[in-house]
Write a protein that binds this DNA or RNA. Structure first.
Length: 406
RNA sequence: GGGUCGGUGGCAGAGUGGUCAAAUGCACCUGACUGUAAAUCAGGCGUCUUCGGACUUCGGCGGUUCAAAUCCGUCCCGGCCCA
């Protein structure tokens, strides 16, 4: 395997702005990369949800950059750790997932990221590993041995635990073992470096400790910036509704990016595209930030779905949302009668979860039939001349109604 | 094991016999404004409804009461202190 040790390229990766911190030292890692030695890197993710998000994408793209240099890269699926739940997320305390659920969650992952990570490269494909392979086999004696490398005080230092203790929230014993497990992953994979978000540094450090003790090896930690609004510092996350998931359709992905605040444009351009820094600068200087965002959205959709679909998504977006036209393709929903209450239709066509919700939406002016607002909650849809009426709920949900068997 | 405080809607967190389908914040939904911006503002946010109401919900079960998230018993779970 040929290792690329081009200084310019390596510095581009290290200095792009994705990496927040390298432990123990950036220079050391740079020198290693320049040395021509083939290194191994890994990035892990726990399958706690069926979809990866742009935060993952950022890190995976960095992993791919390293793969392209010729280094060995591993994408570790935390199918064992996922069942326990990383305490980094405070709400995750006892959210243990079944192994079936975990499997279901990651079943689509590869599909979501196949365009940003090369799993099929002939010479140097990304390797996928599962940590149940080794974590599931550890004996109690071995776990004790691992645990003896850490003190309770060290674990308590983790700010998450500290916070919970302060707030009189439970900290479960098994949660202390989480950093241990993640650390042991490093040992088994015997990697030179681990990639992770800055919120994972504590766990990654546990791996550094174990590597030093068990393998007498210095493991680097490459910690990446969490994607956050430049101005407000608000993180991209599911809990504040700004998470962008990779299983979205091209149109929805485009829309999800357009709904980001302006402060997200730069971090996303840097982290989730490979547009040159020079061009990014130019994009950010565009007069209307909307145009910068459109450029960003198109680029990201292109990365995940290809140029053609990106083009289409842009057109769809402009037509549907900027010009408020009806989308050209609307799903048909057939009704086996000649008439139906609007409320019942909304529920049947999954445009509302319950009759009460359907009714509220109508009364609040969120429902349109053929672009005309309907506020009468007991409105009845009737068949007329085989015409297919377009029912719209909110800004983005459309269904065509069809009376009769389809 | 003992003492003590606690378990409330997706989350956080008020409420401690009727005025409680349960304050408030976050998330979510609809609308206004816009660039589907963000922010902001207005409304909504258990189910069903003949729009009068009806029914189900405050850890589980049982009880007291005309009336229980609220009181009592019991069980399950957690925090803190002691051992």
């Amino acid at each position: 395997m040929k290792i690329i040790k081009d200084k310019k390229r390596i510095d581009e990766i290290l200095e792009r702005g994705v990496i927040a911190e390298i432990l123990p030292d950036k220079k050391q890692l740079r020198n290693k990369l320049l040395s021509g030695e083939r290194l191994s890197f890994y990035l892990g993710a726990d399958p706690t949800a069926p979809a990866l998000h742009l935060g993952h994408a950022q890190n995976l793209m960095l992993l791919e950059d390293l793969r392209k240099l010729g280094h060995k890269v591993i994408f570790l699926i935390g199918d064992f750790t996922g069942m326990i739940g990383d305490p980094t997320d405070k709400s995750a305390t006892r959210q243990k997932l079944s192994s079936e659920k975990v499997k279901e969650n990651f079943s689509d992952w590869k599909n979501q990221i196949k365009n940003i990570l090369n799993f099929d490269d002939k010479e140097n494909p990304v390797e996928i590993r599962f940590n149940s392979e080794w974590l599931g086999k550890l004996s109690f004696a071995e776990i004790l041995e691992l645990a003896s490398n850490f003190t309770v005080q060290q674990m308590l230092e983790r700010d998450m635990f500290e916070k919970r203790i302060k707030n009189q929230k439970p900290v479960y014993l098994h949660e202390f073992l989480y950093p241990l497990m993640q650390g042991y992953d490093s040992v088994v994979l015997d990697v030179d470096a681990e990639l992770c978000g800055t919120d994972q540094i504590f766990n990654a450090l546990a791996g550094r400790t174990l590597m030093q003790k068990l393998k007498k090896k210095e493991k680097f930690i490459i910690a990446t910036n969490l994607i956050a609004d430049e101005k407000t510092g608000e993180l991209m996350s599911k809990s504040n509704g700004t998470g962008v998931f990779l299983n979205l359709s091209p149109n929805d992905l485009f829309g999800a990016i357009m709904a980001q605040s302006d402060g997200m444009i730069k971090p996303l351009l840097i982290g989730c595209t490979r547009i040159s820094l020079k061009e990014i600068k130019e994009i950010l200087q565009l007069k209307n930030p909307r145009d910068a965002k459109i450029r960003l959205a198109k680029e990201i959709v292109k990365i995940f779905h290809g140029k053609e679909l990106a083009q289409k998504a842009e057109q769809y977006f402009i037509a549907t949302f900027s010009k408020k036209q009806l989308p050209s393709q609307i799903d048909l929903f057939s009704i086996n009668e000649t008439q139906i209450k609007l409320i019942d239709f909304l529920v049947k066509a999954h445009l509302a979860q319950s009759k009460s919700e359907a009714r509220r939406k109508i009364e609040q002016g969120g429902v349109k039939i053929n672009q005309k607002k309907v506020t009468q909650f007991d409105f009845i849809l009737t068949q007329k001349n085989n015409q297919k009426d377009v029912i719209q709920v909110g800004k983005k949900n459309f269904k065509k109604i069809f009376f009769g068997k389809n």
